[in-house]
Amino acid sequence: MHFTLGSDLVALREHALKTFRDAAPSAEHSLYDDLWAAAPVPDDDSLLRAALIAEAAGASCGPFHPGERIALAWIAARHPGLRPVLESAPHVLAAVCQGTDGALEIRRGAGTFAVDGTFRVLAPDTATAGHALVLAAHRRRRFLVSVPLAGRGVRVTSSRTVQPDRRLLTVTLDQVGVPEHQALSWDAERALVSLGQVLAAAELLGVMQWTLDACVDRARSREQFGRPIGAFQSVAHTCADMLCAVELSRSMVYAAAARHDGSGAPEAHTAAVTRILLRHESLPVLTEAVQLFGADGLRWSGDLHRQLRRCQVLRSLWGTPASTTDDVIEYLRGQVAAAAAE
């Protein structure tokens, strides 16, 4: 056992951060595409590498959404049958908003499936997403289905989100026909959501670290009453609390990502705990930062509000807070029952 990052992993995080800061789209793809090129094996560091890339994206302050991209690459690697479908058209991933609760109903026809229901999905604002990959259910079987986001039987309501580069689409499907090859059996929806929870947490960690760094720079350089504001105990203690939040969160994210189930997905309970922790620790860091920056923190031209918005979005993804809490409570009840049985 060793609990610190090796030099190769630190270098990966630095390389990813530089790539995101340089904002070269092709280079960004290279980060994701290599991740699952080889099938994960137990004890490898594939998930940790994915988390470090997501962290770097969060710390870059750029318009990158690695969690969804990495999850799509993971699906393609796990289910080669989906690869041609995913490569035929750009997809967005509905599980980001669906969690494990919102599977659509599908019915089998002659060579096709008919899909009904409503789901929500985040889509880039700059381009029209052609398809969404949604979780669906037929009797007791689960499927991943590629559905079109335009055409007959498809109704889409688009809403702006707090992140200017992303829109929230509410999609209603009314007996939309999907060829059978676009609906593939899928038994890993929980693993997918767990993966997404840890990647979103890692990106939040990057956002928190960026915010802490910005606050410390500000506390050292901004002078009021003839001295740096970091000389005032209230400001210094605020920064100290932020460091505590960042390091506690980093410890949880790295621990959750350091071990996977053999497929590259984290253990479900650890992922739920990680989501709960980061959801709780992240937002106060951002809101305290706005206070520390004063009115400068409210400027549209600054980066702080962009990170605040990113934080708000990331906290909302991959399942409802209630469902995540339920998972943890069930775990704790199980622990008590097991101890009583002993």
Binding site: H2, E247, L248, A255, T325, L332
Partner: peptide, 26 residues
């Protein structure tokens, strides 16, 4: 129950933080 789940999460994370520290000591 939400508060309880959060306490559990903080405790788990603190354990992992202590392990990171042991890694630094090594």
């Amino acid at each position: 129950l939400r508060s309880l789940a959060l306490l559990h999460a903080r405790l788990e994370a603190l354990g992992h933080l202590a392990r990171r520290k042991m890694g630094e000591m090594e």
